[in-house]
Design a protein around this nucleic acid. Structure first.
Length: 418
DNA sequence: TCTGGGGTCCTAGGACCC
DNA sequence: TCTGGGGTCCTAGGACCC
């Protein structure tokens, strides 16, 4: 059996743990740059504050309804997340961290366990030790455990936050209940085609013929169908090293100055390099993107990107930054006002075990240099050491006007108990 | 003025091999 | 009239997820 353990309104719940004034109150958490709403408490949902609402359009609404609006505090959420995951590992060794607020777990050799009871224990331990409320869905496949979780979330009174699909009857009941668009793996594209075929609920999708599904939705759609039939197709994936790493940002304003763009690309590239070093990977491929403001209809729109293939894998900030900045000239269009830029690295290989190139290799001084930079930045914080193509004056201009303290990761922000 | 960011997997088609 | 057949690997882009 698989379980999907999902934290309820995770970001909003994290804020509540350390600020009891927020209990029972509507809360909205904003995206980077205080852009749009990305997490809401149940109370805020009840007020119909939509997901993704740009806050500048909803400011008055929030004020009128007394909604607490906060900047996102990723150091806090990341730390709370790892606490939750560690607790899960006490219940089974097989844990797949699927996102910051949810995990799949597999129960191998748990034939004699009462899953309802076990789910209860998981929920109450996480709640007691971290203060984060969760829901648990348990079923024979990952896709079904997702649905079981949705049922637990939707019917808190009847389920007490735990729902187990352990019979054919319950499976069919669940498939008859869940609307197509709420099924994991059915997005806008598939939904449109399925609606055209007259499907409304998950059960209608499962009743289509195998051949049709495979032909039209490929192997992914076919696997999903089998999963919903109760035949497992997806394994637990416990790998934690990423296959791609990205740093992309919207700017505070639009910019048509190429030097400004180059500075940003250099900074994003070093950020990617740092993330690479953290997971002990190097990359073969760098992808650089620029785009204008898609919300400004009157202005000239441009989205451009370039892929850089490297002769040898690296995680040196110097190499990645240089290569990324070099291609900005060929993407950049004069006169376009740019609003977003990004660097994505892929083709990742383990740093201590990669194929050497016969003719080219990295400057051997880079590795020890990077190690020193990382050490200094960890010790003194705030990116004290940068590379010269970055703006040395600039700290980090991301707008975070309503940030809560980093209660669990910064000693200065620790809560004082009287 | 202000509209997020970071991932995974699959597939078609091109380039190449014998 | 008729112009082989069978493969592998890579990549961009799409669809999906949170």
């Amino acid at each position: 059996m698989f379980a999907l353990v999902d934290c309820n309104n995770f970001y909003a719940s994290c804020e509540r743990v350390f600020n009891p004034n927020l209990q029972g109150k509507p809360i909205a958490i904003l995206s980077n740059n205080d852009g749009c709403v990305i997490s809401r408490s149940d109370e805020a949902k009840a007020l119909n504050l939509p997901m993704g609402a740009p806050i500048f359009k909803w400011e008055a609404f929030c004020k009128a309804n007394n909604i607490a609006v906060l900047s996102s505090n990723y150091p806090l959420y990341g730390d709370m997340s790892s606490r939750v995951m560690k607790i899960l590992e006490q219940f089974t060794p097989d844990v797949e961290v699927y996102s910051i607020d949810e995990a799949f777990v597999e129960f191998k050799g748990f034939e004699y366990v009462d899953f309802n009871n076990y789910g209860d224990q998981i929920r109450s331990r996480i709640l007691k030790w971290t203060g984060i409320p969760t829901c648990v869905g348990i079923a024979p496949t990952k896709a079904l455990s997702k649905i079981a979780n949705k049922i637990a979330r939707k019917f808190p009174k009847e389920t007490s936050g735990v729902y187990v699909i352990d019979s054919e009857e319950k499976r069919l009941k669940a498939l008859n209940w869940i609307p197509l668009e709420a099924v994991w793996g059915i997005g806008r594209g598939l939904q449109k085609q399925l609606k055209a075929k007259g499907c409304k609920k998950a059960v209608d999708f499962v009743n289509l013929s195998d051949d049709w599904v495979r032909k039209n939705f490929g192997s992914t759609g076919f696997k999903l169908k089998k999963e919903l039939e109760g035949i497992p197709q997806l394994e637990l994936d416990e790998t934690t090293t990423k296959r791609a790493i990205a740093t992309t940002r919207s700017f505070d304003y639009t910019y048509d100055d190429i030097n400004y763009i180059k500075e940003r690309i250099s900074t994003f590239a070093s950020s990617c390099a740092e993330k690479l070093r953290k997971q002990n990977s190097s990359c073969y491929v760098i992808y650089v993107t620029l785009s204008s403001d898609r919300h400004k209809k009157g202005l000239e729109q441009h989205r451009g990107s370039i892929v850089v293939n490297l002769p040898y894998p690296t995680n040196s900030s110097l190499v990645i930054s240089n290569e990324a900045v070099k291609v900005v000239d060929s993407i950049f269009k004069k006169g376009v006002k740019y609003k977003r830029a990004g660097v994505i690295v892929s083709g990742l290989v383990p740093t201590d075990n990669f194929q050497l190139n016969m003719f080219e290799k990295e400057d051997p001084k880079h590795q020890p240099l990077m190690k020193s930079i990382d050490k200094l930045n960890t010790k003194y914080g705030d990116y004290k050491i940068k590379i010269a193509s970055q703006d040395l004056q600039r700290t980090w201009k991301m707008r975070q006007e309503r940030l809560s303290p980093r209660y669990t990761t910064n000693i200065r922000d620790i809560i004082v108990v009287k």
